[in-house]
């Protein structure tokens, strides 16, 4: 696969790291002030789940970007070239080599981000409304209102989900490690 290591690819990769350098709460505040009013064609997103999803995507772009790009383009171009030497057309190379090899990376990239987002609080605290609560913001609210037992129960739930996700990745990528 060509296009790796070009100036554009480097620029995209580097700018995608910017959100990661900004503190979560500040990044949340930024999105809050950006999306409370409608700006041109973009409607006011405050109060929608879309905004919560959006901010999580932006914040984690460096990881997903890295995992995705690396697994897709850097599976070792030689692995693809070896199939080219074997006489395989592009369609077969994609189906038999690139896809099976990068799917692992994609899955582990996804789970990595999933786990991070599951534990995210400061980033989305300012953006959630009662309709768009997440488990972490619920623990925060319960804690604030003095229901520390509810809060602890949800924390345990978060840990259980995260551990399950981690175990699932290990199973999925077992034996196929690159």
């Amino acid at each position: 696969m060509k296009g790796r290591g070009t100036k554009l690819a480097k620029l995209v990769e580097q700018t995608s790291f910017l959100p990661y350098l900004i503190p979560g709460i500040a990044f949340g505040a930024l999105y809050l002030s950006l999306f409370t009013h409608r700006i041109g064609p973009i409607p006011a997103l405050y109060g929608t789940f879309l905004l919560v999803a959006l901010v999580c995507i932006a914040k984690n772009l460096p990881f997903t970007g890295r995992a995705g790009i690396t697994s897709m383009l850097q599976i070792g171009s030689e692995l693809e070239e070896a199939s080219e030497i074997a006489g395989a057309k592009w369609s077969r190379r994609f189906m038999k080599i690139i896809l099976p090899l990068s799917i692992n990376g994609a899955i582990s990239g996804f789970i990595l981000v999933f786990i991070t987002v599951m534990r995210e609080l400061s980033l989305i605290l300012l953006l959630v409304t009662p309709e768009t609560r997440t488990l972490t913001t619920m623990t925060f609210r319960y804690q604030e209102q003095g229901y520390s037992q509810f809060s602890s129960a949800i924390s345990v739930l978060i840990i259980a989900i995260v551990v399950a996700a981690e175990l699932a990745t290990r199973r999925l990528t077992k034996n196929k490690a690159i």
């Binding site: 070792g76 070896a82 030497i85 090899l101 196929k176």
Partner: peptide, 20 residues
């Protein structure tokens, strides 16, 4: 003429065996 139409075999320095 692309590689797949050249009838050459290649052993890469890294071997490039498909790990899956």
């Amino acid at each position: 003429v692309p590689a797949r139409e050249r009838s050459v075999g290649l052993v890469f320095q890294s071997y490039a065996l498909w790990p899956h």
